[in-house]
Design a protein around this nucleic acid. Structure first.
Length: 771
DNA sequence: CTGGTAGGGGAAGAGT
DNA sequence: ACTCTTCCCCTAC
């Protein structure tokens, strides 16, 4: 942009943007970086923020978003289309100018906040590459230089650098030679080898301590532990032999290879820097510098493995990468085996970590347990180390890579708690804020440690409120925005029809707004009442928030879609392990058609009940129900009401079965007592006592649930279930219905006088349903 | 052109 | 109407 404006205004010395004097204009986008800016280090805070995505958790990397999330500074978003309008008056133009100046200030602040210069300088100093290239984020190149220096020092001849050819595709893939590395699409490659091991989680809610342990930088440690290097591992000749078998671990007698030596040095230097940081005399400035240095050392050590598996790397070495991950899987598996052999309950683990359910509320007990295991694991390895990483006071484990927990940390002898959320929809930017806030509420409730009943009540109530407020239009538009990144340029997508962000991006581009691969596109889903004809796909209902805000657009946010597709599924997933609610119940709270969600279970229930109907007598089915006791108003004695067909019955209604009473039981009195009985049973269900199904154990608890299926008593192998389950409640209510079922009684009795009264009562009932 | 693999989950089309 | 497959995105490690 600057160059083009400079050219238009015939600005002299334009080439001073760089340090080389030039007379020929360079305007081609691709050349600007290297030719015009030669001798300068260009820091693009957009790229820098994305490169530090581990620190910067932002929905998008727009300046507005970053200013808000990183600098806590509000920035007005001026839409592309509105800019010409600012040229209409001097004051508005001055305003726009000021806005632009402020933007440059924000960019500088951002660079400073992200510590881009100090960090890239350290990384560059370590690797010995060009600083400017570190800025563009070429991790593989940094690694390449590091290894080049290292191997040169050791007097090795290094592999040739593959020449990059602009015509990618067929030729390059062929040359690759790896028949297994075939491309699925242009965008993403099929994995070329196996990676980390992820254990099948024992899903559920845990309300006692979960201990989390993990290996310190697993892959760099493996390289050192097993002396894995280009110089030590016997690699099969490429393309021949069986390239899919990982090579053997080198002989332990072999001299330490270059790669392990390098990593050992990095680790050692980091240890030294960390030691310096403990010096009480260190100034804040020094501390900041030390911290940057140790970060750079860690990043460099950790990026080594990834570059071994990178096909375009000069030091590409699939066998080494395979060997490393294979050892990683083996180590995790062995650790699990060791923990289980000690009687510990391993509930989950991912690549370099294991989680253990301790079944205790005492953090000291957990620590002892952890130290014990840690000692035994570390005994097995030379320098590989496992450490206690965290104590989870409560934990909700939903799926692989998806969980949330209350982390307890000790700060100056005081216990502090904090929630940690991994992988859930809640932490993904492709769910709208409304979805996030509802999920967050539910999660906070579930992890609050309060009783199951209160928790579910609050969630149900909150969902009802969300449903009302959403439909009432009380929720601001911002909360409906979904962000999705473009991995390709808009025109490169094969299937545009099903992708909302591509649809929106294409319209943005048509308007002249730049959207390129890597950018984030915001959109909202709208209803389109003007559309007749064939129903639109969801992607075709996606609009940019600016399109929605445009006066006269006629667009309206599709509240029902949001409640059904953005709010309900994530919350239902969170509540799935919690007894006492289900997708249908949650849906009906939101005001959605619950029947859709009942389908699966309702069908199963139906089958179960029709089966019972056919095979099981009423006596059998109602064996465990509570009978309905009705107190007579005259004699004040309670008797069970066995049913209209068997009770004392007359034309004026049911009578007290007491020998010397026989008073009519007034319908309103029966009704009142029936209602009370029903309410009592529903309460009993809601109290949610859980009972171990092993008769020898009989552990009874009302806790939110320890593990969904397993008895909380560690020594007991039994499962646990609701003492009064939903099926029992159903049977109880069915029994009450049966007691007053005239039609059924009529069918089953042969007593003529009773039949007469019953059919009379049936006729009365249809005339006056209340009685 | 610009480390890796594992995995969940949405949307839509193909197949049954 | 249902499942299976493919594509896509984002996340965990």
């Amino acid at each position: 942009v600057l160059l083009h404006r400079m050219k238009a205004h015939k600005v002299d010395y334009w080439s001073r943007l760089g340090r080389l004097r030039r007379s020929q204009w360079v305007l081609a986008w691709e050349k600007v970086d290297r030719a015009v800016m030669s001798g300068r280090i260009v820091c693009d805070t957009y790229l820098a923020a994305k490169a530090r995505a581990d620190l910067v958790k932002s929905k998008s990397y727009s300046l507005t978003q970053l200013a808000r999330s990183q600098l806590e500074t509000p920035r007005e978003d001026i839409s592309f289309e509105s800019i010409p309008g600012y040229f209409k008056s001097a004051s508005s133009l001055a305003y726009l100018t000021e806005h632009c100046c402020f933007d440059t200030f924000l960019v500088i602040k951002l660079m400073s906040k992200l510590q881009v210069l100090p960090l890239t300088k350290q990384l560059t100093a370590l690797a010995g590459n060009l600083w400017g290239r570190t800025m563009t984020g070429a991790r593989a190149e940094r690694n390449e230089y590091l290894l080049l220096h290292e191997f040169h020092k050791a007097k090795f001849i290094v592999p040739d650098k593959a020449i990059y050819t602009s015509q990618r595709g067929a030729g390059a893939t062929q040359q690759d030679g790896d028949e297994d590395g075939g491309r699925k699409t242009e965008g993403r490659r099929k994995p070329a080898y196996a990676g980390g091991l992820v254990l099948e989680p024992k899903k559920g809610f845990y309300d006692k301590f979960v201990l989390m342990l993990d290996f310190n930088s697993l892959y760099p440690s493996i390289i050192q532990e097993y002396n894995i290097c280009f110089t030590t591992v016997n690699r099969p000749v490429r393309s021949d032999d069986n390239p899919d078998d990982e090579p053997d671990v080198p002989d332990s007698a072999l001299e330490t290879g270059t790669l392990p030596k390098l990593l050992a040095r990095l680790v050692d230097r980091r240890r030294q820097v960390k030691q310096l940081m403990k010096d009480p005399k260190a100034t804040p400035t020094e501390l900041a510098q030390y911290n940057i240095r140790q970060t750079a050392l860690k990043l460099t050590a950790n990026s080594m493995y990834g570059c071994l598996g990178f096909t375009n790397s000069r030091f590409y070495a699939k066998p080494l990468a395979m060997l490393i991950t294979s050892k990683g899987r083996e180590i995790l598996q062995n650790t699990v085996g060791l923990a289980e052999s000690k009687g510990l309950d391993v509930i989950y683990g991912d690549t370099d970590s294991i989680m253990i359910y301790t079944n205790t509320d005492s953090i000291d007990e957990v620590k002892t347990m952890g130290l014990d295991l840690k000692r035994e694991v570390n005994k097995r390895y030379r320098l590989l180390e496992i450490e206690m990483d965290a104590f989870y006071q409560r934990m909700l484990l939903l799926k692989k890579k998806k969980y949330a927990a209350i982390v307890v940390t000790e700060v100056n002898g005081q216990l502090k708690t904090k929630m940690e959320t991994k992988g859930l929809d809640l932490v993904r930017r492709d769910w709208c804020e409304l979805s996030h806030s509802v999920s967050e509420f539910a999660l906070n409730q579930i992890l609050s440690g309060d009783g199951r009943e209160e928790v579910l009540d609050r969630i149900h109530e909150y969902l009802a409120k969300v449903g009302r407020e959403t439909r009432g239009g009380l929720v601001p538009i911002e909360k409906f925005i979904i962000n999705k990144g473009m991995t390709k340029n808009a025109h490169e997508y094969a299937d545009v029809k099903s992708q909302p962000h591509v649809q929106v991006a294409k319209r943005m581009i048509a308007k002249g707004i730049s959207v390129r691969a890597g950018d984030t596109v915001p959109y909202v889903i709208c209803t389109d009442h003007t559309a007749q004809g064939p129903s639109k796909t969801m992607a075709e209902c996606a609009y940019h928030p600016d399109e929605l805000r445009q006066p006269g657009s006629g667009l309206k946010i599709d509240f029902e879609w949001y409640l059904a597709q953005q709010v309900h599924p994530p919350v239902a997933r969170l509540c799935a392990p919690i007894e006492g609610t289900d997708a249908g119940r949650l849906a009906s709270c939101l005001g959605l058609d619950a029947s859709r969600y009942h389908v699966a279970s309702a069908v199963a229930d139906m089958q179960q009940h029709t089966m019972l109907d056919a095979q099981i007598s009423d006596e059998e089915r109602f064996r465990n129900v509570d009978r309905l006791f009705v107190r007579c108003l005259r004699c004040n004695r309670s008797n069970p009401l066995i049913g209209v067909a068997l009770s004392k019955v007359g034309y004026r209604g049911l009578r007290c079965p007491e020998e010397n009473c026989g008073a009519v039981l007034p319908a309103p009195s029966i009704g009142f007592q029936l209602t009370a009985a029903i309410q009592q049973h529903i309460r009993r269900y809601q109290e949610g006592w859980l009972l171990c199904d092993d008769p020898a154990c009989q552990t009874r608890t009302r806790m939110l649930s320890v593990r969904r299926e397993k008895c909380m008593n560690a020594e007991c192998l039994g499962g646990k279930s609701l003492a009064f389950s939903d099926k029992m409640l159903y049977n109880q209510l069915l029994y009450f219905d049966r007691v007053f079922n005239y039609d059924r009684a009529l069918k089953h009795t042969t007593d003529e006088s009773l039949r007469g009264m019953l059919s009379w009562a049936t006729r009365c009932r249809s005339a006056a349903p209340c009685d």
